[in-house]
Design a protein around this nucleic acid. Structure first.
Lengths: 171, 171
DNA sequence: ATAACTTAATTAAGTTTCTGATACAGTTCG
DNA sequence: CGAACTGTATCAGAAACTTAATTAAGTTAT
């Protein structure tokens, strides 16, 4: 007769920290900067965005985004398009090549997680499966609070993003 | 009668990606670089380490670690000590001030998660609580596979680490 | 509509944080 | 002991950022 366990936030925090570290430390074939990967993730998930929007979600200056997008454009991973609704703005969109990088990295993460999940017991896998909707809802609550990119996560695709960098520098 | 749900690795991957992004995007009072925060986390969790060990776990060059530790030392966040067992080596240890930064950031994360968890239903919180041990075991399986820092996570403290950076740069 | 203000992106210059290549002192092993 | 390693440190140059200044397109108020 196991009482219902209370949720240990401390425990959850630790576990999430560890997963974060796991994800971030992924090899990375084509060596792209952290911020760059994060931008590609965002674009692949949310669709075309303005430079300003990217600057906001990646927590770097807008200038940094301009420079990075210029570089990504040279490498054929994103494209710049004029925004029909605003002559000043530029819409950045991932190319197929860019999306492939994002997908590749996600596939690596999934492979790793599959490997680990295979070594769990059936009961453990079920427990995680049962918690998944609740965890997803936490994320959703967060992004709507923040006014994140995809407030209504309805059906299909969506955000993504790992490999995020930054905390800025300088004292 | 709900069948036992199968664990969706894709779903789990997405959720973890989102949490990663949440954690990484935390404000950061005292502005420290990403790698720096990660090093402090590692030291606070695993105890004193050699520069080489840090370089390995943070995935930057040893040179970068040396420079960073020098800077952290100047700021009073870590200390260098000779390694009694090896005259060449240096053991880096966090100071109380350094540990305070790590704890502060963890507290912020916990506060955020608490907020979100409070808005879940009781059943949702229970589901997450029930999954926590399994999730922790996945992390453990991972680090022992990698030969990570704390292979036997026994009792007390331990690793930590979020705020990880790096993927390196350069084409 | 026109002047004054705001917003979006770029450009330029300077800073911080890395990588790569040595240099060197301490260890290990024949 | 001397050769081959290992663990740190240092230095030059490359990346990725930041701040500040510039250009251009929208907005607002008169």
């Amino acid at each position: 007769m196991p009482e219902f366990a209370e949720l240990s936030i401390a425990g959850l925090t630790r576990v999430l920290e560890d997963f974060t570290r796991m994800h971030i430390r992924l090899p990375a074939e084509r060596r792209l900067s952290f911020t760059t990967l994060s931008v590609l993730h965002t674009l692949a998930g949310d669709g075309p965005k303005r430079l300003t929007e990217l600057a906001g979600s990646e927590q770097v200056t807008q200038s940094a985004i301009t420079q990075m997008v210029t570089k990504l454009e040279r490498e054929g991973l994103v494209e710049r398009h004029p925004d029909p609704s605003d002559g000043r703005a530029v819409l950045v969109r991932v190319t197929a090549a860019g999306a492939a990088i994002v997908d590749g990295r996600r596939a690596e993460r999934m492979a790793r997680l599959t490997e680990l999940a295979d070594r769990l017991t059936e009961a453990e896998r079920e427990a995680i499966a049962a918690a998944l909707p609740a965890l997803a809802r936490m994320v959703e609550l967060h992004s709507s609070a923040i006014g994140g990119p995809s407030i209504e996560r309805g059906a299909g695709e969506d955000d993504s993003g790992t490999d995020t960098p930054r905390d800025s520098t300088r004292r």
